[in-house]
Amino acid sequence: MGRELIAEDRLPALLKEHQKVADQALVERARRGDQEAFSELVRAHRAQALRMGEQDHAGFASS
C-alpha cells in the first residue's frame, strides 16, 4: 500500500514534467562548469533534433 496507480493518460504529462526538472538540473550543473552535464545537454539536444528531423522526413515521404 501507499503507492498510487497513475492513469495512463496522465503518464506522458508526468514524464514530460520529470524530464523538464532533470533538464533544469543539468543546466544548473553546466552553468557551474560541469563538463559532463554540458555534454549530456548537447547529446539530448542532438537526439531531439534527429527525432524531429525524422518525423519531418516521414511526413514528407507520405505526401
Rank of each mutant, 00 (worst) to 15 (best):
F38H: 09
A25C: 04
R29E: 11
V21D: 00
E40H: 05
M1C: 05
R31N: 15
Q19A: 15
L15S: 04
E54C: 01
G53S: 10
E8A: 05
R29D: 10
L26G: 04
R51W: 06
I6G: 02
M52V: 11
L14K: 01
Q48R: 15
E54P: 02
Q24L: 06
E54L: 15
G59M: 04
D23V: 08
Q48M: 11
R46F: 12
R3S: 06
K16H: 05
A25F: 01
V42G: 00
E28S: 07
L41Q: 03
S63C: 01
A25R: 13
A61N: 09
A37Q: 07
A22F: 07
G33N: 11
A30L: 10
S39R: 10
L11A: 09
V42R: 08
D23K: 03
H18F: 13
V42N: 02
Q48D: 15
Q19G: 11
E54D: 10
A7M: 03
P12T: 07
L5D: 07
E36D: 12
E17V: 00
A7K: 06
R3E: 06
P12E: 09
D23P: 00
E4H: 04
L41P: 00
A13V: 01
F60D: 09
Q55K: 08
H45A: 14
A58G: 05
G2M: 05
E40S: 09
V42F: 04
H18L: 15
K20P: 01
M52A: 13
A13G: 07
S62D: 10
A44C: 03
D56M: 09
A22V: 14
G59E: 12
E36C: 02
Q19S: 14
R31G: 13
R43A: 15
G53W: 02
V27I: 10
E36A: 14
Q55A: 13
A22P: 02
R3M: 07
A37K: 03
H45Y: 13
A44L: 15
E36Y: 01
M1D: 09
P12G: 08
P12N: 08
D9Q: 07
L14M: 15
R43V: 12
Q24M: 02
R51Q: 14
A30V: 08
R43E: 10
D56L: 09
E36R: 11
R29T: 06
K16V: 04
D9N: 03
V27L: 06
D34R: 01
V42A: 12
F38G: 15
R29K: 15
E17M: 00
R51D: 13
P12I: 08
L41G: 01
A13H: 02
E8K: 02
F60S: 07
L5F: 05
Q35F: 04
H18M: 15
E8I: 00
H57N: 05
D34L: 04
Q35A: 13
L11F: 06
H18S: 14
G53N: 10
A22L: 14
R51F: 11
R46N: 15
I6E: 12
L5T: 05
M52I: 12
D9R: 07
L14E: 14
F60G: 00
Q55S: 11
S39Y: 02
A61Y: 05
M1R: 09
E36Q: 13
D34T: 07
H45S: 15
R10M: 11
H18Y: 14
R29N: 09
G33W: 07
